[in-house]
Design a binder for these strands. Sequence first.
RNA 1: UGGGGUGUAGCCAAGUGGCAAGGCACGGGACUUUGACUCCCGCAUUCCCAGGUUCGAAUCCUGGCACCCCAGCCA
Length: 560
Amino acid sequence: MTAIEVGKAPNFIRRIIEDDLRNGTHGGRVHTRFPPEPNGYLHLGHAKSICLNFGLAAEFKGKCNLRFDDTNPETEEVEYVESIEEDVRWLGFDWEDRLYFASDYFDQLYGYAVDLIRQGKAYVDSLSGDQIREYRGTLTEPGRDSPYRKRSVEENLALFERMRNGEFADGEHVLRAKIDMQSPNINMRDPVLYRIRHATHHRTGDKWCIYPLYDFTHCLSDAIEHITHSICTLEFEDHRPLYDWCLDNLNTPSRPRQYEFARLNLDYTVLSKRRLIELVSAGHVKGWDDPRMPTLSGIRRRGHTPEAIRDFCERIGVTKADTRIDLGVLENCVREHLGQAAMRVMGVLDPLRVVIENYDSGRTEDLSAPNHPQRPELGGRTLPFCNEIYIEREDFMEDPPKGFFRLAPGCEVRLRYAYLITCRDVVRDASGKVAELRCTFDPATRGGDAPDGRKVKGTLHWVSARHALTAEVRLYDRLFSVPDPDAGGGDWRANLNPHSVTVLDRCRVEPSLSHARPEARFQFERLGYFCADRRDWSPDRPVFNRTVTLRDTWAKKANR
RNA sequence: UGGGGUGUAGCCAAGUGGCAAGGCACGGGACUUUGACUCCCGCAUUCCCAGGUUCGAAUCCUGGCACCCCAGCCA
């Protein structure tokens, strides 16, 4: 089956797999893996990799493992393991019974290292870290052999065993591959395979005091798991010769191949674990799941959906070109999904009181409204109406510009699913600010239609002042004020957007929202998509996060 | 200036010698009880540049240029 036949955009990795399948490489199997290091939370960049790896496996009837690359006990924690599992599952992927840890292979890895030593292809080096760096040479000058490079196999074997037994302090010795100190590829200049770290590992505890490095661990873990296509990001391209060297020099149960694609860059945010950690620890955001964060837990809390993120990952493509994706692409994906999935409700963010003078003040009536105008099967709900309502303050202008078809003195507008009303008077407070509007309604327009067929262009959202719930609404904007916060060499933190969050605590929402549950998503008509905060929402204190606004061509026009 | 990569519209991206898909953005219009959605229409005589091969080049060749990655006992 080709990419076109399954309805997916072709990309170079799909093509490689199709070729391999055609040629019977890897025995016709497709087996990928997603290999996060548990030292941070997953972000959108990881989502691209997850969708690629799990997606390819599903597409070609293969499998995808979840494997934690946990070879650095000093930075890794179970909190991260747990969050990563939750996020991958939330995104919609299933590793079934294939949850693995590189640390599960420490015994085998040790055996492979001994094998390399026996073959004379690895040695224990006793240079200090600084010396190793000196001997390595530079980008343009070749390196020099370590004086310890010629140690005998027996001596290396003994020393390596003593390293394992804890006889040395951190940094005293390392195990290195014996490749080529002259290589133009720095990764091949006798790379370090094992280092001594007297640290407690989150899974193996104190069993080990030597830990293998990424290059040695990753290729062998892939081989142990019978991975066929080991897909990673571009910065590992230079490591591929080393990946291949290890597998070519060791007797492994399978022979995986590594392929590299460009990592994701997104406008107005940062997607490096280092930066994200800094944001959290410096308190620029309120934790890893702050709705402004590009972490999966952050955008989840913001209200994004797994469907939208998967769609996003499919749309941005997979190539080897460095790219920076327009934020609009992500926003468009959520809008598209929520546009068909989210129930519609009404909520007023900045309430302006409206009194309907000719509506009996003792009366309340129930008006009905569909939950989704395009999807009648989603049912409807009831909206209480009375003589006191709230509308959005910005929907009224005393002196409107041409083309403004909302409320203004003497003008008639429609209250969505209710009545046509006309503004008769403006009441001000002591400071001169508009405090209240006095309007009249047309009793013949119940539901919003005028029996005489007169056209009313403007339709406003509203809530009954006597029935509305008070809610807190958090408005989120881009975390940074420039597209590429890390560019330019200046302090990236200076590019943080000081207005990335606005908390509104006197919003009024329709009473049906009392039945909302944490993480429920809605379209607040004419405003945008909002999500009940999964941490802070409670029936007593509804809290909604704005996921994204609706497209607003009026605002665009008004800005011009 | 060593090695490894990448250059197709504002942002992504197909394209693999036969005459530049698609998405986002943008502009115009229709529809509209969400200025939303939806629907139309428009948007690269040209593919980093310069030569060359060919009846024919984004695709092949030669030479440039620009950008990204690599000198952790991180991944």
